[in-house]
Amino acid sequence: MPASRPKKPGDPLHPRASGPLRSFGRIKSRTIKPLQAALFGTLLPTIAVPDPKAGPVDPRLLMPEATEAWLEIGFGGGEHLAEQAAKNPNAVMIGCEPFLNGVASVLRHIDDRGLKNVRIHADDGRDVLNAIPDASLDRVMILFPDPWHKVRHNKRRLLNEETAAQIARVLKPGGRLRFVTDWKDYAGWALERLNRTPDLVWLANEADDWRIAPADHVVTRYEEKKLGDTAPLFLEFERA
């Protein structure tokens, strides 16, 4: 059996790579369709979030007329982000996704539906999260993040102590976090870290509160594939 390719120091999966561990896998798969590819040059520049590594990302400047600001980290194919944007036109919807096919998909949704309240960061959502000022967001949504379910890969999970603390920091008092996963171990992992994060309060009182989807949940194609080891588990937290 041939030896596996050695990881170089510049490789995001190399143990000595600089910066935070990458919480996502590949960034592109199949060829992007021409019409979607064209939107990268026409639509995306008009709705792109300013470079979060260059300075703060203030939601109030992204859409001054907005009455709320929501952030979705890892929007996948964008069906959920687009539907929430359509249902909540007064909220600026900040969506982050490094997977280029997902970005192509959401651009098509935005263009087809004429959505004016979506802003996109086509890269790691943690950069935007870190750049948002304190108490700026009404909602944060993390739906079906990569589970990294092998124990040796758990450290790559998006939801960790640092991310939980940043979420608590950027949420307004009364703001909500929704974390959804279809892996039991990840749900337990997330619950443990969120429960010990100051100022985040779990809203569940009984099992149905995490087993039954909230009324405004949008089912996506990914969810319908049922790739995890459990039905979706919904963890809702509020900023005290």
Rank of each mutant, 00 (worst) to 15 (best):
L35N: 13
D58I: 04
P6F: 14
A215S: 10
G77W: 05
I142K: 11
V201M: 09
A66S: 08
E161M: 01
R113G: 02
V219Q: 11
A48Y: 00
I94Y: 04
V118P: 08
P147R: 11
A165W: 12
M93R: 01
D208I: 06
L191Y: 02
L107R: 11
D146W: 13
R26A: 01
G74I: 14
P232H: 06
F99W: 08
K172Q: 08
F75C: 14
V106T: 15
T46L: 12
S105Y: 11
P145K: 07
A85W: 01
V140M: 01
P56H: 04
S29E: 01
M141R: 15
D209F: 03
H109R: 03
L203N: 14
N195S: 14
K184S: 12
E238A: 13
R108L: 07
I167W: 07
K184P: 00
R156H: 14
W148T: 13
L81G: 01
A135M: 04
Y186N: 10
W70G: 03
L143D: 05
L158D: 11
P133M: 03
I73L: 15
G76Y: 08
D58K: 00
D229Y: 06
L137S: 02
L21N: 02
E68F: 03
S23K: 07
K150T: 10
R193G: 12
L227G: 09
L191S: 03
K150N: 09
R157Y: 12
D127M: 12
N117Q: 09
G41S: 14
R211L: 15
A164C: 11
L62C: 01
H109G: 02
R152E: 01
H153M: 07
I110M: 00
G78F: 15
L227K: 12
K225S: 04
N90P: 00
W70V: 06
R152N: 02
A66N: 02
N195Q: 08
F40Q: 04
H80A: 15
P34E: 11
L61K: 05
A122H: 07
A66M: 00
W189M: 06
A187Y: 09
P20H: 11
D199W: 00
N117D: 02
G74T: 13
G19H: 07
L171D: 09
M63P: 01
L194E: 10
E236D: 12
V106S: 09
A213G: 12
S105F: 08
E65V: 06
K172D: 05
